[in-house]
Structures are given as structure tokens and as C-alpha cells.
């Protein structure tokens, strides 16, 4: 029983991380058909900002991180992605790959490959014990923060004018423009929101692992994109569902894999992704979309 509860908590925590990352990726994909690999670098940069500011009072640290990451996201959009907007998916993918590579190596020039550590938000490492279950405050905060951000995003998309414009642009960008929607503004807003999600993710990630390195963005973006793909790329609810599904999946693998195979977790996971992409290219949760019949 306690293992079950522990399992659920671990899965929810992991799922929250993946949902955050997945959402950032799905949001951009929905609007621009771009899988933004550089999203991982947003998380990495956020982590380095945390490293630089973790001794500040925590509201200031969080504000600094959000500001820096959002700024980077907007710059990324303006300089690298706007010129190639509308290009074919392969070009977009390579562009995002190039930006990711660029940022990683810029970070290497600035910070070297040596990982850093930061004791961010130390208060969160304490745990609560209830009976035989131990929950760390960090888990609670992660789950709650993610839930809050999700609700906020949903409200934004449904209740605000910019949110409706964003949904319209995601469905039919050209038609939205014909209605007078300012395309550049909507895309920038999407990147900014992605930046906020990435910043939240990076703060929580650093709090959890304490470590910061220039390659730390890779795992989040891989898992984030996997979760988004599972849910059907471009679907926001799908991304969230995919994130939690992935959280449960990876936690299950972690609990269930015998010790010798533990290292292969990623191999199993990505073989699973491969199988999924092959069998259900539209994602697990989408019904088979219009397949072109010739």
C-alpha cells in the first residue's frame, strides 16, 4: 500500500516535470509547426541563472530566472525562427537543432564543461512524513506549481483575446492573419509563455538535482517532446496527458526493471517511442487522423 502511494507521488512528480516541458514544446509546435530543440537550452540557461542568483531571496531569484529565460526565448524567435517561418518541417527542425547547438557551445565558452552545483530553495528539501509515507516538500511544490501553471494557461487561452488569437493562429495561421491577428505578436507570446514554463521547470529541476551543466537541457527536451508526441503533437491537453503518462511510464520502469537493466531505461523508453511513432504517428491519444490515401 505504501509503495503504491509512494509510486503515485513519484509518478506525479515526474509527470509534472514532463508535462511542463511537453507543454512548452507543444505550444510552439501548434503555432509554427516547429519542434523547438532549443527549448532544452532555455531550461539550461534558466538553471545557470539560478546558479548565479541562488543566494538571493527566492522571489528575486525566480523573477530573475523567468526574466532571463523569457528574454532569451523572444530573442531566439526574433533572430533565428522568424526568418524561417513557413519553411518545411525539416528546415525548421534543423534550425532549432542549430540554435540548440549554438547555445550549448556559447554556454561552454562562458561556463566550461565542468558541472556546477547550487543549493536552490533549500527549504524544499525537507520532507513530511505521514505514517510510512515520506513526501518531500519539493514534490508537493512541483505538483502544485505545475497544476497552477496549467490552469493559468488554460484560462489564458480561453478567456483572453490574445489567447483566442493564439488558438486561432494554431489552427489556421493564414486565416487568423486575414482576420487581422498580428502574427508576429502571437508567435512572440507563445515563445514567451514557453519561456515561463521552461523557467519554472529549470528552477524546480535545479532544486531537485542540485546540479547544473551545459548538457542538462537534452533530457528535458527529449522527454518533453516524447510526451508531446505521445499526446499528439500540437495538442495542448495531449501534451499534458502525455507528460503524466510518461511520468507513470518512467517511474514504472524504474520500479520494475531489474537492477542490471536499470541503465537501459532510456533504451527501452525510446524504443517504445520508436514503436509508437511507427504504429501511431498521430500520437497515442489522437484517433487516427486523416491518412492520405492514394
Amino acid at each position: 500500500m505504501t509503495t503504491a502511494v509512494q509510486f503515485v507521488l513519484d509518478a506525479l512528480t515526474a509527470g509534472s516535470f514532463y508535462a511542463l516541458f511537453a507543454l512548452g514544446i507543444a505550444l510552439i509546435f501548434g503555432i509554427m509547426q516547429l519542434v523547438n530543440f532549443a527549448h532544452g537550452e532555455l531550461i539550461m540557461v534558466g538553471a545557470y541563472v539560478v546558479y548565479l542568483t541562488y543566494r538571493w531571496p527566492w522571489p528575486a531569484m525566480i523573477a530573475a530566472t523567468v526574466a532571463a529565460v523569457v528574454l532569451l526565448a523572444l530573442l531566439m524567435e526574433r533572430i533565428a525562427f522568424r526568418p524561417v517561418r513557413g519553411a518545411n518541417p525539416a528546415t525548421l527542425l534543423i534550425t532549432s537543432f542549430a540554435v540548440s547547438f549554438l547555445l550549448q557551445n556559447l554556454a561552454q565558452m562562458a561556463f566550461t564543461t565542468l558541472p556546477k552545483s547550487a543549493d536552490a530553495l533549500p527549504a524544499l528539501s525537507r520532507s513530511i512524513t505521514a505514517g510510512r509515507i515520506t513526501i518531500s516538500w519539493l514534490s508537493v511544490v512541483t505538483i502544485v506549481t505545475t497544476a497552477v501553471l496549467l490552469v493559468a494557461l488554460a484560462l489564458f487561452l480561453r478567456r483572453t483575446r490574445l489567447g483566442v488569437q493564439m488558438r486561432a493562429a494554431a489552427e489556421d495561421f493564414g486565416m487568423a492573419q486575414l482576420c487581422g491577428v498580428r502574427g508576429n505578436r502571437v508567435v512572440a507570446a507563445a515563445f514567451a509563455i514557453g519561456g515561463v514554463l521552461a523557467a519554472a521547470g529549470s528552477v524546480l529541476l535545479v532544486s531537485q538535482t542540485g546540479g547544473i551543466s551545459i548538457t542538462m537541457g537534452l533530457a528535458p527536451v527529449l522527454f518533453g517532446f516524447t510526451a508531446a508526441a505521445v499526446g499528439g503533437l500540437g495538442s495542448l491537453p495531449g501534451a499534458v496527458a502525455g507528460g503524466y503518462l510518461l511520468g507513470f511510464g518512467t517511474t514504472l520502469l524504474q520500479y520494475a526493471l531489474p537492477y542490471q537493466l536499470a541503465g537501459y531505461r532510456d533504451a527501452f523508453l525510446f524504443l517504445g517511442v520508436f514503436a509508437l511513432m511507427s504504429l501511431r504517428p498521430g500520437g497515442l491519444l489522437r484517433t487516427a487522423g486523416a491518412e492520405v490515401r492514394v
Binding site: V164, R167, A168, E171, D172, A176, L178, G180
Partner: peptide
């Protein structure tokens, strides 16, 4: 100058109300 393009191109996932409000964007 506003155009109604060929094929209607309404936003299927948005409500009628939201579609209309988009017309008034500008």
C-alpha cells in the same frame, strides 16, 4: 479591406462566438 477566402476557413475548434470575436480583432 477584409476577405472571405475560398472554402470558408472558419476555425473549427473555436466556438461560433470566438470565431465572430476574431473578426473584430482589429
Amino acid at each position: 479591406v477584409t476577405m472571405v477566402p475560398e472554402g470558408r476557413r472558419i476555425f473549427a475548434t473555436l466556438t461560433v462566438a470566438e470565431n465572430l470575436s476574431l473578426g473584430a480583432t482589429a
